[in-house]
């Protein structure tokens, strides 16, 4: 039996009928065609699929679309300003070379925003520990840590 799901995604209301087994990540990527949210694993560990659900970072590959019914969802496509100006976290990643291939980046940025929200002035160690849900294979994390440090200052 298909289920009807309605939610707000990046400020816009969306409604669709989906199979109950549809994951939020699949809903975002396939139904809404917002392909910035990436899927890098099948055991909910890489964090590339991270989006904000009612303001908190969650792994969209490990949540049913139904679980987000009625929720406010923000994806990587929804955090820059309407005129294209990058969110301070995105800008900091750019300035500090916190990305290489770009695949983990959307999830990394969404997690990092959540991190700074819950730990407004993080130390290097808090940042490293706070990225426990995100894997990056390119950067060795060094510049991601620097970017988040810089963004936390900019977001204050």
């Amino acid at each position: 039996m298909p289920v009807k799901v309605s939610m707000t995604v990046n400020g816009k209301p969306v409604t669709a009928e989906v199979e109950p087994r549809t994951l939020l990540a699949t809903f975002i990527r396939e139904t809404l065609r917002l392909t910035g949210t990436h899927v890098g694993c099948d055991t909910a560990q890489c964090g590339a699929c991270t989006v904000h659900l009612n303001g908190r970072a969650v792994k969209s590959c490990n949540i049913l679309a139904s679980q987000a019914d009625g929720a406010d969802v923000v994806t990587i496509e929804g955090i820059a300003r309407a005129d294209g100006t990058l969110h301070p976290m995105q800008e900091a990643f750019r300035q500090h070379h916190g990305l290489q291939c770009g695949f983990c980046t959307p999830g990394m940025v969404m997690s990092a925003i959540d991190l700074v929200k819950t730990t407004p002035n993080p130390t290097e160690q808090q940042i490293r520990e706070g990225l426990d849900g995100n894997l990056c294979r390119c950067t060795g994390y060094h510049n991601i840590v620097k970017a988040i440090q810089a963004a936390s200052a900019a977001m204050r």
Binding site: T35, G36, L86, R94, G102, F103, T105
Partner: peptide, 21 residues
Amino acid sequence: VKRKEDYRFLTGAGTYTDDVV
């Protein structure tokens, strides 16, 4: 020089193979 490719990667505008339908 800051990378030219970063804007698309940071805004979810990259096109990886699985994004192609």
